[in-house]
C-alpha cells in the first residue's frame, strides 16, 4: 500500500519585488512527500531551497501554484485557519534552535500545545513523551543555557513533533553542531519520520542529505535533479 501524501507542492512560483527588481525565487517547483518519507533539498546559497521550505510550511504565500499539507490547500485558507494548521500539523526545526531562554526544556516543548488551547497538564505530558522519544527526558527541568548545543537541537526536534504533528520541516538543523552530534540528531529525526511523519530537510551537507529517501537538487528556483536511495552493497564492501 502506498502511504498518503502529506506534503504536496504543485507548480509553485515565488517572485519578490517587481519590474526591474523582480527576483524569481521559485520557478515552478513541484514535489510530493508521503508519510514515513524524508526528502532532502540541496542547492547553493540563493538557489531557492529555504524559500521552498517556508512556502511548504505556510510561512510565506506562493505567487502562484498550490501547496497542500495534510490535504489542506494553504493558499485557500484564511489566516486563522492557516495559523491553526501550522500549530497543529507542522513542526519546524531551524539551525539556531529558537528555544525560549526563560522557559525550561519541558515548558519549551509543551508551549505549542498550550498555545493551541491544550491544558497545561496534558501539554506537559505530551511534551514529556516527546522528550522521552528523543532520549532526553532527564533534561526536562533544565533551562536552554544549561544544556549543550546538541541537546538544545534535540529539544527543538522534540518540540517540532510534539502532539499530533505530521509534517517536519528542517532548515540546516545540524548547521551549528559537530559531526558526531549531527549524526545523533539526524538519526533521531529519521526515527520519528519512520513512525509516519513526512519531512523535508534543507541542507548543504551531503552526509546529512544521505539520510533522506530522495534528494532533490534545486538550482535557480527549479528542481533540476532527483536522486533515490538505492542500496548497492558492491559499492562499499558490505557483507
Amino acid at each position: 500500500m502506498t502511504a498518503e501524501v502529506l506534503i504536496e507542492l504543485i507548480d509553485v512560483q515565488k517572485t519578490y519585488g517587481n519590474g526591474e527588481n523582480e527576483v524569481h525565487a521559485l520557478r515552478g517547483a513541484s514535489l510530493q512527500v508521503r508519510a514515513g518519507e524524508l526528502i532532502a533539498i540541496m542547492g547553493a546559497s540563493g538557489s531557492g531551497k529555504s524559500t521552498l521550505l517556508t512556502i511548504a510550511g505556510g510561512l510565506e504565500v506562493p505567487t502562484s501554484g498550490d501547496v497542500r499539507i495534510n490535504d489542506h490547500s494553504l493558499p485557500t485558507l484564511r489566516q486563522k485557519e492557516l495559523a491553526r494548521l501550522r500549530r497543529q500539523t507542522i513542526g519546524y526545526v531551524f539551525q539556531d534552535f529558537n528555544l525560549i531562554p526563560s522557559l525550561t526544556v519541558v515548558e519549551n516543548v509543551a508551549l505549542p500545545l498550550e498555545l493551541d488551547g491544550m491544558n497545561a497538564r496534558n501539554a506537559r505530558r505530551a511534551a514529556t513523551d516527546s522528550l522521552e522519544s528523543m532520549g532526553i527526558s532527564d533534561l526536562a527541568k533544565r533551562f536552554p543555557d544549561e544544556i549543550s548545543g546538541g541537546q538544545r537541537q534535540r529539544v527543538a526536534i522534540a518540540r517540532s513533533f510534539v502532539g499530533p504533528r505530521r509534517v517536519l520541516l528542517a532548515d540546516e538543523p545540524t548547521g551549528a553542531l559537530d559531526s558526531k552530534t549531527s549524526e545523533s540528531v539526524i538519526r533521531a529525526m529519521r526515527k520519528r519520520i519512520d513512525g509516519g511523519l513526512a519531512g523535508i530537510l534543507v541542507t548543504h551537507d551531503a552526509k546529512l542529505a544521505a539520510w533522506a529517501d530522495r534528494i532533490l537538487v534545486i538550482r535557480d528556483g527549479q528542481i533540476v535533479d532527483e536522486l533515490k536511495t538505492e542500496l548497492r552493497p558492491e559499492q562499499f564492501g558490505a557483507n
Binding site: R190, A206, A209, W211, E230, L231
Partner: peptide
C-alpha cells in the same frame, strides 16, 4: 550522482545497523 548514490547506500546500511553490537564496530 554516482558518489552521492554511494553515500546514500552507505548511510542506509548504517541506518539499518545496530550501533550497540560490538561485532558491527569494524564494519
Amino acid at each position: 550522482v554516482q558518489t552521492m548514490q554511494a553515500l546514500q547506500g552507505l548511510t542506509k546500511a548504517k541506518r539499518e545497523s545496530n550501533l550497540d553490537d560490538p561485532n558491527e564496530i569494524p564494519w
